[in-house]
C-alpha cells in the first residue's frame, strides 16, 4: 500500500474537479431541475399519488440514481482515459503503485465526486419538493456503494476505450436506456405483467428499487436483494480491474 500515491492520485483528481467545478456541479443540478419542472410539475400534477406519495417526490430517488450512475461512469472513465490519451499513463505504469492504490486513488475520487453530486441533487430536490427520508443511514450507504460500483465500471470503460467515441458509447447506448427503463419515473408494478418480467433482467431496476426503499420504506423488491446486487457488481468490476492490470490487457504492450 503506497499511501502517498493514493493521496497524490486522489488529490490530483479532486483538483481536476475543482478546476472544472461549473461543469462538474452546475450541469447535473440544472438538468435535475429540468426533470422536476417537466416530470414532477407539468406531467406529475396529472398523475395520481403512488403508494400515498406524490409523483414529484416519488421520482426523486430515480433522478438521483440517473445522475449518479452517469456521473460515476463518465468521471471514472475519463479520469483514466485522459492519461491514456495524453500519454501520461506511462508515469502511472512506471510508478511503484499496486492496483489497489490506483483503485483507491482514481475510483475513490470518482466516488467522492458522484456522491457529492448525488447529495447536491438531493438538496436541490428537497428545496423543490420536501422529502422525508425513512432510512437515512441506509440511503447514504447505498448511494456510496452505487457510486463506488459504477465508478469501478466506468474505470473499466476508460481502460478499455480506444477513442472518445467508445468512451461515450456505453453510457449513452446502454446505461441511459437501462436507467430510463429501470423505473426511475414509475414503479415496476405499474407495468403490464409481461414488461414486469422483462424488467427483472434490468439490473438498474434493483438499484432504483433499493434506493427508493431507503426513502419511502416500500419497493418492488426486497432491499437485501438490491444490496446483494450492488455489492456483487462492485466486486465483479474490481476483479476485472485487477485482472486487467495484472495481465496488462489494453494497458501495457
Amino acid at each position: 500500500m503506497n499511501f502517498y500515491a493514493i493521496k497524490a492520485i486522489y488529490l490530483y483528481e479532486m483538483s481536476r474537479t475543482f478546476r472544472t467545478i461549473s461543469q462538474s456541479l452546475i450541469a447535473p443540478v440544472i438538468s435535475t431541475i429540468l426533470y422536476f419542472v417537466v416530470f414532477g410539475t407539468a406531467i406529475g400534477s396529472k398523475i395520481e399519488n403512488i403508494e400515498g406519495i406524490s409523483y414529484g417526490v416519488f421520482i426523486v430517488p430515480g433522478l438521483v440514481m440517473l445522475s449518479v450512475l452517469m456521473q460515476s461512469i463518465t468521471n471514472a472513465a475519463f479520469a483514466i482515459y485522459f492519461p491514456k490519451f495524453v500519454g501520461t499513463i506511462n508515469e502511472l505504469l512506471s510508478a511503484p503503485v499496486n492496483t489497489s492504490d490506483i483503485i483507491l486513488g482514481y475510483i475513490g475520487a470518482a466516488t467522492t465526486k458522484s456522491f457529492s453530486i448525488g447529495v447536491i441533487i438531493l438538496i436541490t430536490a428537497h428545496i423543490i419538493v420536501p422529502i422525508n427520508i425513512v432510512h437515512p443511514i441506509y440511503m447514504i450507504l447505498f448511494l456510496l456503494l452505487t457510486c463506488f460500483a459504477f465508478s469501478s465500471f466506468g474505470f473499466i470503460i476508460g481502460l478499455w476505450a480506444k477513442n472518445f467515441e467508445q468512451l461515450n458509447l456505453i453510457p449513452m447506448l446502454i446505461i441511459t436506456p437501462l436507467v430510463f427503463l429501470g423505473g426511475s419515473f414509475y414503479s415496476i408494478s405499474m407495468l403490464p405483467a409481461f414488461w414486469q418480467k422483462i424488467s427483472m433482467f434490468n439490473p438498474v431496476v434493483y438499484l432504483i428499487s433499493g434506493f427508493r426503499w431507503t426513502f419511502f420504506n416500500f419497493s418492488d423488491f426486497s432491499f437485501s436483494i438490491s444490496l446483494f446486487a450492488i455489492i456483487s457488481f462492485a466486486i465483479l468490476c474490481n476483479i476485472i480491474i485487477f485482472r486487467m492490470f495484472k495481465t496488462g490487457y489494453k494497458i501495457r504492450t
Partner: peptide
C-alpha cells in the same frame, strides 16, 4: 527509477508545481 519519456506527455491543464508534486507523491515520497 526516474523516467524522462521521449514524448512530451504531461497533463496540459495542471500547473508546473502541482504536476511535480503529483509525481513525487505517486512515487511514494
Amino acid at each position: 527509477i526516474g523516467l524522462v519519456p521521449q514524448e512530451v506527455a504531461i497533463e496540459p491543464f495542471e500547473t508546473v508545481l502541482s504536476s511535480v508534486k503529483f509525481s513525487r507523491g505517486l512515487f511514494g515520497k
